[in-house]
Computed example of a mutant assay.
Amino acid sequence: MDIFFFAVMGLLLGSFYNVCIYRIPRKESIAFPPSHCPNCGHKIRWWENIPVISYVLILRGKCSSCGGKISVQYPLVELITGLVFGAIYYRYGMSIWTAELIIAASILVIASGIDWEHYYIPDRFTLGLLLLGYGFSFFNGVGIERSFMGSAAYGFLFVMIYGYGERLFKKEVLGFGDVKLAAGIGSIVGYLGFYRMHLFITTSFVAGAVYGIYLIITKKKDRKAEVPFGPFIAFGGIISALLFL
């Protein structure tokens, strides 16, 4: 039952994270006004705001008032958050790691959603990850030294990719927000050996490459098109945290 509780909590919080993803880049309050349709202003009623279920079974992807299309991002964010929260509890149970990773996953979900839509990651999220990693390192067994080493090592590797990738491909392959996001993840997982760091980077880039190939095959974007990389860094970080801490 505990894993079910964490999964449901993730679904419910995922609904709120959607509000954050939409409003924070627009510099709007995340508390007021209540959730509403951005097209017609229709106030979302409680039965229209049940995670995943409302989108699929009740609204069927459209506003009940104006019929405007609702982005599939909303149920996806809810579902991903629920699955990640459930996986974290399944892996770590009731522990300090569960508390830390629930907060980290929340930051990563919101940062990834903003990056996906707007192609940038606000500093408050990358700085929040760094402080989270440093703060919890005193209690979770990582230690402040390995936490600092992790942020430095992960950040340095992505700085190298950021700099040399631009020289090699004659365009920006990563944003500096991606570098700071990787450093934040490094502060949480700590430096526990090059193999684990290599796996984090490989997972992130393979996931990003698969998505890029999909876009090219389906002709949704060409090879020169910009693709947000923050979500794939977040994916690699979550996989690393679940498998190797």
Results as ranks from 00 to 15, higher is better:
H118C: 09
G113Q: 11
V109E: 05
C66N: 07
L245R: 12
Q73L: 11
K170Q: 13
Y214H: 08
V109H: 05
F85C: 07
G86A: 15
G10C: 06
L11F: 04
Y214K: 09
T203D: 13
P75Y: 11
G175F: 04
Y89D: 07
I3P: 00
G236Q: 07
V159H: 01
V189F: 02
C37L: 08
A111I: 12
G163A: 14
L157E: 11
V77G: 02
R146E: 07
E48D: 15
I21T: 10
S151C: 11
G163K: 10
G133L: 04
E145C: 06
I24A: 10
G86E: 07
K69A: 12
E172R: 15
F205E: 05
R26A: 10
G190C: 06
R196F: 13
S106I: 12
S240A: 14
Y191T: 02
K224L: 14
S106F: 07
S54Q: 10
G190N: 04
K43W: 09
P33W: 01
R167S: 07
I201D: 00
P122G: 09
S29F: 02
Y74M: 10
K27V: 03
V173Y: 02
Y89A: 09
G175P: 07
F156K: 00
D222L: 12
G93A: 09
G133K: 06
G135F: 11
V142W: 01
H118D: 08
F148G: 02
S137H: 04
V142A: 01
Y90L: 14
V109C: 12
G237F: 07
S137K: 02
D123S: 15
Y214R: 07
Y74F: 12
Y92G: 05
L13E: 04
L181C: 09
I88V: 14
L181P: 04
E78N: 10
F176G: 08
F32V: 12
G68Y: 06
V227R: 04
I114N: 06
F235G: 00
G67P: 09
L76N: 00
I24R: 03
L130V: 14
G155W: 09
I103D: 09
V19F: 05
S151K: 00
L181Y: 06
P25E: 10
I216G: 01
A152M: 14
Y22I: 02
S54R: 11
L174T: 06
F6C: 05
I161Q: 01
I80Y: 03
I216P: 00
S204I: 06
F85D: 07
R23L: 13
R91P: 01
G186T: 08
